[in-house]
Design a protein around this nucleic acid. Structure first.
Lengths: 225, 225
DNA sequence: CTTCAACTACTAAAATTCTCATAGTTTTAA
DNA sequence: TTAAAACTATGAGAATTTTAGTAGTTGAAG
């Protein structure tokens, strides 16, 4: 099982290489997109892992060019939070999976395993949550409403994700604290309200129909009216 | 099974009451230490849960007075981070367990269960990690070196705890990142080094013998020399 | 219909966490 | 022995998370 890893940051590259080799994969490495393209054309890899931001040829272009050359090798793309613009543009570049840095190594391994299983790659659809024009991509961590990208912090993302998974259900502040913060009830402070406020500013403020609603004395719901 | 809950913050009090009642405990409540004392004297509770900071009579004094009156009811004391001074002073007030706020409700329940099991309460010793004058109380989250209290943030505490549990072992930065941050390797940044630096300032700087050592190219160790 | 108490919204600031740039140190290799 | 490369220390600041206080709403009771 031979894997190509493309990454311009030496430390990250070697960490990935070492980790994969410890798991008995054969690993080739490339520091930039141009070399990666050469290697990928010449060899028949089982998987290509590539960063987005690179000198020479970025991950999207690499991915697209390989696909255009008829190379079907699964591609796992590594992204960093904050490369949002690029990410949105590159969704259709031909990559099979995205993994947002920083990540656990075990998670990378899991993806490598599933992507190298024959036939399974095409079955993997990007995991997203949707509700009324609001869309969360759980792989890339990109959130959009009506196509417009919304930047969320880690905590805001987790909160919104929980509300999305329970859309239409009224969630008490204790419930939110338990599930989003892993906190029972401190309730010396009003952090849930503060974060609801943050979310509203980002998700509802510039739109006509509001999605986050207060149920007095009960909690908050994500719903249409 | 009857439990007395003492807490001056109404929201917290009612949240605890409700949670316990849902788990089929009978709950009495008191808003301050004086009423709590009266109730505890009159009734034979299976457990008393009390906050430290309260009007009238604080948790420590309450605890001590009850013990002096011959009342052996197990006491679970709730503390908030930052009440360090008090906590250190109150270790021997007679409380059986400490729980630092904020906490998960399931954790409170677990403690309630174990404290209400006959005979088990005396077996519960405070869980602490020790190494060369350095002491971490995992219940109260109080850290001391040679008796001197050291204030740590949550992240610093987790890092030190991990190093204490692996004292003498060289821990690589990847290993620390995995276990303390749940991060595989991002390594675009040097956050581990930064936090080692924070810890050193608090734990080693004002002491002659240093406990945190760098092993060049390998990582960090907690050891004597 | 008022008034009160409980609850929620919002603003500002404090604390913590994380990032980045620079300087210093150690090892390796010529 | 010296220079380069790799690694580590440290300070400063940006971003995020959390706390705290005040103002504004809502629902209920009289």
């Amino acid at each position: 099982m031979r894997i190509l890893v493309v990454e311009d940051e030496p430390k990250t590259l070697h960490a990935i290489q070492q980790g994969l080799e410890e798991n008995l994969y054969e690993v080739d490495i490339a520091y930039d997109g141009l070399i990666a393209r050469q290697l990928a054309m010449r060899n028949n890899y089982s998987l290509i892992i590539t960063d987005i931001i690179m000198p020479g040829l970025n991950g999207f272009v690499l991915s697209r060019e390989l696909r255009e050359s008829g190379i079907q090798t699964p591609i796992l793309m590594l992204t960093a939070l904050g490369e949002t613009e690029d990410k949105v543009n590159g969704f259709d570049s031909g990559a099979d999976q995205y993994l947002v840095k920083p990540f656990q190594f075990v998670e990378l391994l899991a993806r490598v395993r599933s992507l190298t299983k024959r036939g399974s790659s095409t079955l993997m659809t990007h995991q997203t949550l949707k509700f009324e024009g609001l869309e969360m991509n759980l792989d890339t961590k990109v959130v959009t409403r009506d196509g417009q990208v919304i930047e969320l912090t880690a905590r805001e993302f987790t909160l919104l994700e929980y509300m999305m998974r329970n859309q239409g259900r009224v969630l008490s502040k204790v419930q939110l604290a338990e599930n989003v913060w892993d906190i029972g009830f401190d309730t010396g402070t009003n952090f849930v309200e503060v974060y609801i406020n943050y979310l509203r500013k980002k998700i509802d403020k510039n739109f006509d129909t509001k999605l986050i609603h207060t149920v007095f004395g009960m909690g908050y719901v994500l719903k249409k009216e």
